[in-house]
Amino acid sequence: MNIVVLVKQVPDSGAERNLRTDDNTVDRGSASNVINEMDEYAIEEALRIQEAHGGEVTILTMGPSGAAESIRKALSMGPDKAVHVVDDALHGSCALATSKVLAAALGTLNADLVLCGAESTDGRVQVLPHMLAERLGVAALTGARKLTIDGSALTIERQTDEGYEVVTAQTPAVVSVWDTINEPRYPSFKGIMAAKKKPVQALSLGDLGVAPSEVGLDGASSAVVEHSKRPPRSGGQKVTDEGEGGVKLVEFLATEKFV
């Protein structure tokens, strides 16, 4: 099975994140940038499928040149090769444009299965998988907590608020995963060394036949008009329990009219 895993580099969600003051885009310069956490689960799932069914695993990333670091990291987990869509004109692309570019790149890769994270931690938009499927005319099985493969038949358990749905489709398909699906492996020393030699193909917009005017800030279908820091919450009253903590808690809730 030929698998492509979508990997996005994002600013670390555990650190302070900012938007740039000049053009309102995500400030990647000041951030510590990491692989979007959910995508690590997609990589792990791809490797397990490869172990069971054979085939090749390719990482696909659209992002600035600095994303190369995350691509190497992804490769050190075990995938065979990577494709990096990198072009200055991409800066500030909206989700719609990103999906156009990734769909064009996928068009060159002939994947049976596209695996990706259910959402990215920076935008939290959760839209890419269906946008890609819509553009590629393939099935999208999204929000998987379990994936089983039987020949060309794919079945997922899709997590919902009430429980889960069992959804099936035939390859080719896009499958997005939650962090409940597996436990990603850590790269081994051998894996890290091997990753240095794995092929990473750079693709420009020209290579993909996408016009610069269709992407980036100029081609964006939505725009941030302004942004500001939300005033941080400040702590209120804090009491130490000396036998009356529960009662005091309820007294507070009562003054706030919750009981």
Binding site: P232, R233, S234, G235, G236, Q237, K238, V239, T240, D241, E244, G245, G246, V247, K248, L249, V250, F252, L253, A254, V259
Partner: peptide
């Protein structure tokens, strides 16, 4: 969590929560 709590109780939840539950029942 106390940096953003409007009201915080520093204490063992296994003591504080049952007592709070009891107090709410009393007030109902």
């Amino acid at each position: 969590i106390f940096e953003l709590a409007d009201f915080g109780v520093v204490g063992d939840l296994f003591k504080v929560v049952p007592q709070a539950a009891e107090e709410i029942r009393k007030r109902k």
